[in-house]
Every structure is written in structure tokens, then in C-alpha cells.
Nucleic acid binder design. Structure first.
Lengths: 341, 341
DNA sequence: CATCTTTTGAGGTACGTACCTCAAAAGTGT
DNA sequence: ACACTTTTGAGGTACGTACCTCAAAAGATG
């Protein structure tokens, strides 16, 4: 049987009230007594029964998912997943709300974040670019005791408590390795496509991709990144122009998740001429493209894991409890047609 | 606020005791009254507070992991993972014990399983081959109300409640696709290696592998499976013999997890002659082989996920609560040097 | 309608923890 | 030794559920 507060009281030779004061850091206990109690806790291996504690204190965790309001297949998937999890989270005493944020307007974003408050929220999971305003807003939140997790793309120079997502340099390297091994023939050029090279994840992926191609597959040439800025037509124009300009296109690597018009271009090509195509993020659309053979591999991260892991981390922070970091690491997944879920 | 039993009582116009009788299926309630209560539960969306319930009934889940006692890197990893999880499971009121089972002796295995009992155990997670004796033992357990999960390799024709592991045909297909795309040159032979072709997982993986190679990469020849029966020296002999006999070996696919001596053979070869090597199960050893380039890809399943998912499923069964199947699906993971954790 | 059985209600205690009050004890300074 | 503050103890209630007992009400049977 696990020890209870009563056992601690007996072992330390104090009353239940004193144990309670020590555990919950209430004032009015001498240092010597605190020590006695802590030693008893240590030697008996006491851990607070979280469910009993939550029951007693009527705690509900209030978490906010702040996700870009701009439409993309990935954010859409993220919203869906959050909604699904939110529906069943109440059994774990967790209230989840979503906060659509204007990701491309730093001031507006900061304003939205500044509406959050320790009185109304216990934790925030945020997917946003790092700007000075965001840094300030997060500093305010963490200082007020609100747990903050960066979602999908890290905010390394802020006071965020956790990062939940993949190592994007490694993801780029993985794409590079697959590209290098999938491409046949002894030379060729690779198109790299993204929405914006401002985003850190795009930068990091390109970095990792280049490193692997340059060191391990130097017979391949990686072309300058084409930026579509969220415009589907621009993707079509850029890709078609690249094909016109160069006859040796053997691969396409799409850094971000705007792949709808890309696969449109590819289906126009004769199958034999179709380049090796590697994209990011498994969505209904990229899944279909994998099935049909328009896309050769998808590098992805499990959005369900991301959302659930965020919740575990935010909860652990508000409970001041240690977690197992190995369990929370998000994996870089490689999806082929054959291992689709 | 979520509704409590008190709310149900008020809504149904009955007393707390009656609600309790209905919820816990105690006798002495008229059918009409049962209906009233159930409707109130339905319309208020009541769900029992599992932590409060467990607190009240002083429940501890008693689960057994029955894993082969024969040493292999994979079972070793499994044992380690179970031990780690067991160490922290007590905070979730879960007692985990491991039961080493003689996997290759059906009678002894059944005897061990028959020692288990609904009085001492709430659930069993079992990694074993399917034999008539195992079928009988599992039937006895499930009928007694013990939850049973098949681990890693399925027991489809038994009364097991869950399967926790990957689709091995799809895993074989994945290996086949990678093999086909990684191999360069326009012909060649592939060695397939396993411990035993008796095991269903080996059979299924080979099946999937063959299908992809034959339909998509018909320029490659898959050689008959070599069986090592757990003998490292035999691996060395078989592989070396295959290399002597044929000059066109371009790939090696290892179906099971006895890869130590295999990588030993490979390091003997000149790097240029080294065949594309794909193995199963990420262990410390295969991880190192990936790092060093002796192995090109590892098809694997996250053992941590497997163990934790088993626990969730067994718990949900003993609590008679629904779970989210999507969350419990174990993914077929592809590990390259670049996306190692 | 009396008797017997079934169904229901009212109330209690318990789980492990949080948080509260009040009094007693121990320690402090003069 | 005095008043004073700080520390400690004893006891209570509550959270939502499980499980128990006993009595009252409702229903069935003769």
C-alpha cells in the first residue's frame, strides 16, 4: 500500500495538520519540523495522490490552445484534433478552449495573448512565430505562473516552459536522405518549395536538407527555395517555370504544408517524368497523394501526440510534478504508401 | 460543472441510493426506475468520476505482462520498458508484475497461464505464439472477466480483447518499398533472414515484402528465407555462404530481431560491396548500426507506446469504459540515421 | 384487508487530500 | 515570571463515489 499523509505524520512524529502545512507550503512551521517531515516523505517514498488531491481541491485545469486562424491543411487538422481531445478532456478535469490568433500580425497577436490571465487560465499551448512582442507576452504569463508550451515550432528565446514538436533540422536531414536514395540517375536538380522562408521551421528544414544532399549526394543540385506566400496559383506558376527552365528536375521537396496545388502540377506530368516528391505533414490530402503515388514520402509528426503531450506537460507544470521526457518526445515519422495508418 | 450522482438523483426524481444501485448494477430496482435513471444519465451526460470511484472503492489495477523468457534484444528492451513503466504506475493505482514465459514450450506456457486467476489479476498482456493450449487458457481467463491483450504479435483466433502491435504485413511491405528504392542497379538478389518461420510475424512480414518486390521491383530476386533459430553462429555461416554462392547480393532483410551477428558479417565487407540492409526493431545495437551505416533502415514500433497503450486498454476494460482506438494504434515507424530520437 | 415481498429512501462511513478553526504548547523578549 | 508571538495539534467539513444498514413505502398474494 502506498503511504498516505497519515503515515507521514506518524513517521515524522507530528500531526496531520503539520504534514499538510509542509506539503502545501503553508506558513507557520519551524525549519526543523519541515526537515523532519520532508525526511519522512523521502524515506517512505510518499507521493501525493493526485486524483484525491484534485477531488478535494475541486481543481479543473483550464488550458488554452492558441493556433493560427489562417487556413492551412495542417492548422485545420490541428484544430480538429484539439476539438476531439477537448470533447473527452473533461473526464480528466480539463477544460480546453481554442484561441484563434492572427499569426502574421505581431501586434494583434501580442494583444490577444495579453488578454490571458492567471486568474482565468492555467496553461497555454501556442503555435506562433517568435517576435519581441510574443516574448514579452510570454514573459508576463510565465511570471504569473501560467504554464506555456510552444507548439510545433519552438520559441527558444522566450520563457516558454516546454516545446512540443519535432527537431526540424533533423526532419530536413531525413527528407534529404530519402531524396538522395530515392532519386535514380547520376545528376539532377531539386526544387525546394515553401510558403515563407521567414518561418524558422522552413529555414531549419532547408538547412538539414542541404547538409545531407551536399555531403552525401553531391551529384544532386538543390535549387534556391521558391516562396509561395500561401498563394496556390503562385505555386503552380513557380513550379511550371522551374520545369521549363531546367530539364533535369529529379526531385521536389516541399518544406511547408501547402501541397494542394503542387500535387495538381504533378498529375499533369507523364508518370515517367514525375520527380521524386517529398512533402511535410500527413493530412487527408497528402495521404491521398501518397496512395495515388503523386507523392513518394511524407515527413510528419503525430498531431494527436502533440496535443496530448501538451496537455500532459501543462498539467505536470501546474501540479509541479515531474514527467518522463522520453515519453513526450515527438518523433519524426516517415510515411510511405505502405505504412499509412 | 460536470453532473454528479446527486444531480442524476434529482433529475430522475429518485434517491441517491437508487442511482447508485443502477449505476453499479445492484439488484432490487424496478425496470421502470432503472429506465428513469438511465434517461437522466443520458440527458445530463453524466460520466462517472473514475478517480473518485477508484478512491472510494480502493481499487488497484493488477496487471501482468507475460513476456518470453528467452533472451533477445527486443524482449530485453520490452522487459526494461515494462520495468520503467511499472516504477511509476503506482501513481495510477496500477500494480504491474512480469511473468517470464517459456515461449517455445506450449504445454509449459499454458501451465503458467493457468496459474493466473481473476482473484489475483485484472488483466494480462501476453506476447506468445498462438497454440491450442494458449487458446484454451485465454478463453478461461476472459470468461473469468480478466482482460487480455495480445502484445506485439496478434492472437487473432483467441478470445483476447485487444491486440497491441503493428500490422506485420504492412511492415513487410514498408521494408520492401524501402529496399526497392534504396537498391541501385538493374538486378540483384536479396537475402531474407529470420529466427524462425514458425512465428506469424515473420511469415506476415515476408509476405508483405515479397508482394511489394514482386509487383513494384520485379528486377530484384528475393531468396528463400534463412532461418537461424536463435543461433548467432548460424547467422554468420548462412550469410557468408549466401555471399559465396551468389555474386549479385544487393540487399538483406532481417525479419526478426537477431541482428548482432548480422552486422558483424557486414562490417567485414568492403563498404562499396555492402548490400542495402533493412532490419526490424530499434534497439541499442541496431541504433548503433544505423549510426555507423552498417544498417540502412530500421522498421520499428515504439515499445514505450506498446506498454502504455496496453495499460490504457486493460484499464478501460476493467472499468468498462470506452477508449479512443485512434490513439491506441501502434505505428510502423521507419528509422534512418537522420531521424533517430 | 392482512401479510408478505419487493422496492425505495434516508442516513451513515470510508477513501486520501485540502483547507479551515480554535485551543494548547512551545518559544521569545523583557 | 510575565506577556507575547510563533508553532503545533486536534478536530472538523468537503470533494464524488462505493457500499452498508435499517426503516418506510409500494406492490403483490392470499
Amino acid at each position: 500500500m502506498r503511504p498516505t499523509t497519515h503515515d507521514i505524520a506518524k513517521a515524522a512524529g507530528v500531526s496531520l495538520a503539520t504534514v499538510d502545512r509542509v506539503i502545501n507550503e503553508r506558513p507557520g512551521v519551524r525549519d526543523r519540523t519541515i526537515e523532519k517531515v520532508k525526511q519522512a516523505i523521502e524515506s517512505l517514498g510518499y507521493v501525493r495522490d493526485v486524483s484525491a488531491a484534485n477531488l478535494a481541491r475541486q481543481r479543473t485545469y483550464r488550458f488554452v490552445f492558441a493556433v493560427p486562424d489562417a487556413y492551412s491543411e495542417f492548422t485545420e487538422l490541428l484544430h480538429q484534433t484539439i476539438a476531439t481531445v477537448a470533447g473527452t478532456a473533461h473526464v480528466e478535469r480539463t477544460e480546453i478552449s481554442t484561441l484563434p490568433i492572427p499569426a502574421d500580425d505581431p501586434h494583434a497577436l501580442a494583444a490577444v495573448l495579453n488578454q490571458l490571465d492567471a486568474d482565468t487560465v492555467d496553461g497555454v499551448a501556442l503555435m506562433a512565430p517568435e517576435t519581441p512582442h510574443v516574448r514579452d507576452a510570454l514573459m508576463r504569463l510565465t511570471e504569473a505562473g501560467v504554464a506555456v508550451a510552444a507548439l510545433v515550432s519552438d520559441l527558444p528565446n522566450t520563457s516558454r516552459n516546454f516545446f512540443v514538436g519535432i527537431d526540424n533540422i533533423a526532419a530536413g536531414k531525413t527528407a534529404g536522405k530519402l531524396m538522395g536514395r530515392f532519386v535514380t540517375g547520376d545528376s539532377g536538380s531539386i526544387i525546394v518549395l515553401t510558403n515563407s522562408m521567414q518561418a524558422t521551421d522552413s529555414i531549419e528544414r532547408r538547412l538539414g536538407f542541404d547538409e545531407v544532399i551536399n555531403t552525401q549526394f553531391s551529384h544532386l543540385t538543390v535549387l534556391p527555395t521558391l516562396e509561395a506566400h500561401g498563394d496556390p496559383d503562385r505555386v503552380t506558376r513557380l513550379v511550371n517555370a522551374a520545369f521549363k527552365q531546367r530539364r533535369d528536375i529529379c526531385g521536389i521537396y516541399s518544406l511547408s504544408s501547402g501541397n494542394r496545388s503542387l500535387t495538381g502540377c504533378l498529375t499533369q506530368l507523364k508518370p515517367a517524368l514525375r520527380p521524386v516528391t517529398i512533402v511535410h505533414e500527413l493530412t487527408t490530402h497528402t495521404e491521398r497523394a501518397l496512395q495515388q503515388g503523386t507523392v513518394d514520402a511524407v515527413i510528419t509528426q503525430d498531431v494527436g501526440h502533440i496535443v496530448r503531450s501538451s496537455l500532459r506537460l501543462l498539467r505536470s507544470h501546474t501540479d509541479q510534478i515531474n514527467i518522463n521526457p522520453a515519453q513526450e518526445r515527438i518523433r519524426i515519422e516517415i510515411m510511405l504508401k505502405e505504412n499509412l495508418p
